[in-house]
């Protein structure tokens, strides 16, 4: 892009509030999915993120993710983050191919901010969830080659005053979940744990504990999900989204809670 000239578009060609369309016109190589191979499958080992959970509680929603990324049979990272703020009142959790997933998050974050600046007002939570669906759909060609990205989206709906959770499939299909959802290779184990103990009136603290416990349960069963690492003191990342917006729970609080949970069960028998 030429720095000294501003981007103006001919009538009928204006991309409106869509940042992806602006990017497609001005810097086409930056668009996610545009560099996908045309044929063949992804035989190379790419970095994969694993388990994320989203749990609705009385006054909002909790998102949490383990910290492991794998590449084939190896651990690629012990400290990867899988839960990000999409904007002030929503968060996105990623599982699948880490490269395209992080790129998707970055694009989604800019899109929400771009829309708000162009239109002078932010998107509704449903609007955000639909936008994300479109972006996942745009990644379908890459997904067919093995670079699957399926995000988990959750936010506080300011108009309705509740936390809401959305999941996606690889074609961009968007499904609103009633109370909780998980994603990634350990997701099924985490989901079963949550299902057994979730209640409608959980407090923030109870929901955080449930999220941590479900991730530990997933790590217990799934090789690609990282458990609590007491030696290096690495614990899951947790975020709370409620009337105060998106807040990351401090490392100290998570460490204290995780240790209390582990201590409460003799030799981890309950996990």
């Amino acid at each position: 892009m030429n720095e000294s000239s501003l981007p103006f578009f001919a009538r009928g060609m204006d991309p409106g509030p869509s940042f992806v369309d602006v990017l497609r016109r001005l810097a086409p190589h930056g668009v996610a999915g545009s560099g996908a191979p045309d044929h063949g499958s992804a035989l190379i080992d790419t970095v994969h993120g694993t388990t994320v959970v989203a749990i609705r509680f009385a006054s909002g929603v909790i998102m949490a993710g383990d910290r492991r990324a794998t590449s084939g049979m190896s651990i690629a990272s012990r400290r990867i983050e899988k839960v990000f703020a999409a904007d002030d009142f929503s968060g996105i959790g990623i599982a699948g191919a880490a490269g395209p997933a992080v790129e998707l998050v970055k694009l989604f974050q800019v899109q929400l901010e771009h829309y708000e600046k162009i239109e002078g007002e932010g998107l509704s939570l449903d609007g955000k969830a639909n936008q994300l669906g479109g972006m996942v759909r745009a990644n379908l060609p890459a997904a067919m080659q093995g670079l699957v990205v399926v995000p988990l989206f959750a936010g506080y709906d300011e108009r309705r005053g509740i936390g809401r959770v959305f999941s996606y499939d690889v074609t961009g299909g968007k499904y609103e979940e009633a109370d909780f959802q998980t994603n990634g290779s350990g997701g099924v184990h985490a989901r079963n744990w949550i299902k057994a103990t979730w209640r409608d009136d959980m407090t923030r603290d109870e929901a955080i504990d449930l999220a941590l416990r479900s991730l530990f349960a997933a790590a217990d069963e799934d090789a690609a999900t990282g458990g609590p690492d007491l030696v290096r003191r690495i614990f899951p990342t947790v975020a709370v989204i409620d009337t105060d917006g998106f807040t990351s729970v401090s490392d100290d609080e998570i460490a204290t809670r995780a240790e209390a949970l582990l201590g409460g069960r003799e030799e981890g028998a309950g996990l």
């Binding site: 501003l6 981007p7 940042f19």
Partner: peptide
């Protein structure tokens, strides 16, 4: 136009 220019630059 300024918002578009800034957002594309910041993203790229």
């Amino acid at each position: 136009a300024g918002v578009r220019q800034a957002d594309v630059k910041g993203y790229s």
